[in-house]
Design a protein around this nucleic acid. Structure first.
Lengths: 157, 157
DNA sequence: GAGCTAATTGCAACAATGTTGCATTTAGCA
DNA sequence: TGCTAAATGCAACATTGTTGCAATTAGCTC
């Protein structure tokens, strides 16, 4: 109950956090940037730049696609968002400045995405690479499978 | 010495392997498919469909880009090649039917790519995901860093 | 609150990448 | 050699991403 009541606050705090990061880094807080943040906040799945444009248009708002590309570039540089390579979409970052590479799990059924960090995995992966003569700087890791809901629907409890 | 002498044979065997796989799976061995295999064999870095078209054109050969897309689709389905998402290019698979997901290390300096398998990593990553309620079916893992040559050039021995 | 200025956005035009349907060609067979 | 399904080429189009420059605006000063 409390949980449900709190949720909107928690979520909008995330947007507020992003706005503060923009400000402290010397970037302006503009209407287009707010709008893209809102869309990313609401999205359950990765959204492409043109998806974002469509979603905004449905709300009677218009952004040029070039603007959206540039905003997403900025957000990715500041780690406020990530590009999901397996589908070309973007998601807001849910981990903040947590150390280690940010890994994704994407449900192939409903498309929902979960982000996580696992320092031990990073270390092991780097070690594996060193054995092949490669010196890792960062990982990119995306897994595909079924989220708990979709798994339950198919295979029962 | 022997090592050097053998190399060409080993490499062309890889193309020969791919051709046999095509045949045994009931696909035809056509000139365009051979040509794409050759390009992938020679390429040290991932190549895009249009890269392949350009490279062939330099040899006086012409393939329609649609044909190249379809051939690469087929090769990926048969695991004769992989798409490298971090740069959109394709590479020939160097691991054959080895079990486990195929991981890449890409040198950010010279672009060279190394493919490897690490079953233990796969297991750990899947376990990590299960803890978040996700049931993994396959991983996609690409790391960026420096290969041994480029590392040496920058940081000495 | 008005005015200033660099940062940001919009616009236009273009480049690159990827897809579809259908006519033509060809590999692999009898 | 001829046949036929598989594969390729072609044309047209859809989507995605980029560049340079003019117009707008956020955030500052006064």
């Amino acid at each position: 109950m409390l949980h449900l009541a709190l949720r909107p606050c928690i979520i909008s705090l995330v947007v507020q956090d992003s706005i503060q990061i923009l400000q402290t880094q010397g970037y302006r807080v503009t209407k287009p940037r707010r709008q893209v943040l809102e869309v990313l906040k609401e999205a359950k799945e990765p959204v492409s730049p043109y998806d974002i444009q469509r979603l905004l248009r449905q709300q009677g708002k218009y952004l040029n696609h070039v603007t959206i590309y540039r905003i997403l570039d900025l957000f990715c540089r500041l780690n406020l968002a990530h590009k999901v390579l397996s589908n070309g979409g973007f998601v807001k970052c849910t981990l903040g400045s947590k150390e280690g590479c940010h890994r994704f799990m994407v449900c192939r059924c409903c498309g929902v995405l979960r982000e996580f960090v696992d320092e031990e995995l990073c270390k092991k992966e780097s070690k594996s690479a060193v054995n092949l003569g490669f010196h890792t700087e960062y990982h990119l890791s995306e897994s595909s499978g079924l989220c708990s809901d979709c798994y339950r629907k198919r295979f029962g409890e």
